[in-house]
Amino acid sequence: MHLRPAAVPTSVPRTAGRLAFAAFLAVAGVAHLVSAGSFRAQIPPWLPAPELVIALSGVLELALAAALALAPRRYRPAVGWVVAGFLVAVFPGNISQFVTGTDGFGLDTDRARGIRLLFQPLLVALVLWCTGAWAARTSDAPPRP
């Protein structure tokens, strides 16, 4: 069986969004590596080896940033799904910061931490849109009867 690459929609706004997201991840990745202590607030208390988790997430963010910026067009939907999965995987850390009331990154009130939680699904939607991941998924779906 031969799989054809999915049609990957692209446009100036999608490209700008993808590259902006790549820059955001690159900055976050570097920050994880040079200022690891600042990220301690997002590590749930039940997670072992918080410093290792912070370092590994920083390296992963740098790799995802490179993939978003450099992946050939036909691979962008797959990259989008991986980045979306990463954002879902780190969401428990944001929830933990809210539930435990831990200050970090200027998030020093429950309101600020709560507002941050609302942005995570928007980030997932943005990365799925700007990489064409959602459109490629739905365009390959079998027709409805």
Score class of each variant (00 low, 15 high):
105 F>V: 01
91 F>Q: 09
24 F>R: 14
114 G>L: 13
48 P>N: 13
109 T>V: 00
90 V>E: 09
136 A>T: 02
83 V>M: 08
92 P>R: 02
29 G>M: 02
120 Q>T: 08
94 N>S: 14
3 L>G: 12
64 L>R: 03
59 V>P: 11
30 V>C: 08
14 R>W: 00
10 T>I: 07
54 I>P: 10
125 A>Y: 02
24 F>S: 11
120 Q>Y: 03
26 A>N: 01
138 T>E: 10
114 G>S: 08
71 A>D: 00
59 V>Q: 15
102 T>S: 09
128 L>I: 01
12 V>Q: 09
19 L>Q: 14
126 L>D: 01
53 V>P: 00
108 D>L: 08
41 A>T: 02
117 L>V: 02
84 A>F: 08
14 R>N: 03
131 T>Q: 06
21 F>A: 15
21 F>E: 07
101 G>H: 10
44 P>Y: 10
102 T>M: 07
28 A>K: 02
22 A>I: 10
87 L>N: 09
11 S>I: 07
98 F>S: 06
141 A>K: 11
98 F>H: 14
30 V>R: 15
78 A>L: 15
84 A>N: 07
53 V>F: 04
94 N>H: 14
32 H>T: 08
56 L>R: 10
113 R>E: 09
121 P>D: 04
105 F>N: 02
140 D>E: 15
98 F>G: 03
4 R>K: 12
36 A>Y: 11
25 L>R: 09
60 L>F: 10
126 L>C: 11
75 Y>R: 15
38 S>G: 14
99 V>Y: 08
59 V>N: 13
47 L>Y: 03
57 S>K: 06
39 F>E: 07
113 R>M: 07
66 A>S: 12
39 F>K: 05
122 L>W: 00
145 P>I: 00
4 R>I: 00
18 R>C: 08
137 R>V: 11
64 L>N: 03
63 A>V: 13
7 A>Q: 10
94 N>K: 12
2 H>A: 13
134 W>N: 00
103 D>W: 05
32 H>K: 04
77 P>L: 13
